[in-house]
Simulated assay, not measured.
Amino acid sequence: MYALLILDMQVGLFHGPDKPWAGEALLNTLNSLLSKARKAGAPVFLARHVGPPGSPIEPGSPFTQLVQELLLQGDDVVFEKSRPNAFAMTDLADRLKACGSQGVVIAGMKTQYCVDSTCRAARDLGFDAVLIADGHTCTDTPALKAENIVAHHNATLAGPFCRVVHAENWHF
């Protein structure tokens, strides 16, 4: 069984001053994945990145709240993380093992930070990591456009770190 893991789809990142590339398409993709996961009885996990007290993303900050556009349900597991890797200093690996997941389907934000480090860590921890090619995004940087960052990570992570699959081709 595979679990769905959606990273950092937070108000501060998604609705902040720097808009993510292809944001509306990402929301549609994530909601489709949520629907597929539920129909298959797959567990759903959503991570929220928080910072230290006094920071704009301190625990409880409105910036760390998940975007309302995601179609969440009461049995979805929402947890906080403080590192880019969603497994670091969290009980995510234990929770995945407890629900019988051999693999984790990864999507969300931001491509070059949390998505990248979580894909790499999942494989190191013995999970079959699947990155949804059209299920992650970021914002432009001074060096690269977001579209190029996403394409680069899809190419770089595919193989040694995870399988890269388009959402329409993934079935839980």
Rank of each mutant, 00 (worst) to 15 (best):
residue 72 L to R: 15
residue 65 Q to T: 09
residue 74 G to S: 11
residue 77 V to G: 00
residue 56 P to Y: 13
residue 74 G to K: 13
residue 64 T to L: 00
residue 73 Q to W: 03
residue 80 E to C: 05
residue 62 P to Q: 08
residue 78 V to W: 00
residue 55 S to C: 09
residue 60 G to R: 09
residue 77 V to R: 07
residue 55 S to W: 03
residue 75 D to T: 15
residue 78 V to S: 01
residue 75 D to Y: 09
residue 51 G to P: 09
residue 57 I to N: 03
residue 66 L to Q: 01
residue 62 P to E: 04
residue 74 G to A: 13
residue 71 L to I: 05
residue 57 I to G: 00
residue 74 G to T: 12
residue 73 Q to M: 04
residue 80 E to F: 00
residue 72 L to E: 10
residue 70 L to E: 13
residue 59 P to K: 09
residue 55 S to G: 14
residue 64 T to Q: 02
residue 61 S to P: 12
residue 62 P to V: 04
residue 59 P to H: 12
residue 61 S to L: 09
residue 53 P to Q: 03
residue 79 F to W: 06
residue 66 L to G: 05
residue 72 L to V: 01
residue 55 S to F: 06
residue 71 L to Q: 15
residue 59 P to V: 15
residue 76 D to Q: 01
residue 80 E to N: 12
residue 61 S to C: 07
residue 68 Q to I: 03
residue 63 F to Q: 10
residue 68 Q to S: 15
residue 59 P to E: 10
residue 80 E to D: 15
residue 72 L to P: 02
residue 78 V to H: 02
residue 60 G to Y: 11
residue 63 F to V: 00
residue 60 G to A: 13
residue 73 Q to S: 01
residue 72 L to G: 09
residue 75 D to V: 08
residue 55 S to K: 08
residue 71 L to N: 15
residue 75 D to I: 01
residue 69 E to V: 05
residue 59 P to W: 13
residue 51 G to S: 14
residue 58 E to C: 05
residue 71 L to P: 04
residue 68 Q to N: 11
residue 75 D to N: 14
residue 55 S to N: 11
residue 55 S to E: 12
residue 56 P to H: 14
residue 61 S to Q: 11
residue 71 L to C: 14
residue 68 Q to M: 06
residue 66 L to S: 07
residue 67 V to F: 12
residue 61 S to G: 12
residue 54 G to F: 00
residue 78 V to D: 05
residue 53 P to A: 02
residue 57 I to M: 07
residue 51 G to Y: 07
residue 76 D to I: 00
residue 52 P to C: 03
residue 70 L to V: 12
residue 67 V to Q: 12
residue 76 D to C: 01
residue 51 G to A: 15
residue 59 P to T: 10
residue 60 G to H: 05
residue 52 P to L: 15
residue 71 L to T: 13
residue 60 G to I: 11
residue 63 F to D: 07
residue 74 G to F: 01
residue 74 G to V: 07
residue 79 F to E: 05
residue 51 G to N: 03
residue 80 E to M: 05
residue 66 L to F: 10
residue 79 F to M: 07
residue 65 Q to I: 03
residue 71 L to D: 15
residue 53 P to R: 04
residue 80 E to V: 04
residue 67 V to I: 14
residue 55 S to M: 07
residue 57 I to R: 00
residue 68 Q to T: 14
residue 67 V to S: 06
residue 77 V to M: 03
residue 52 P to T: 10
residue 58 E to N: 04
residue 76 D to P: 07
residue 68 Q to W: 08
residue 78 V to Y: 00
residue 66 L to D: 08
residue 54 G to P: 00
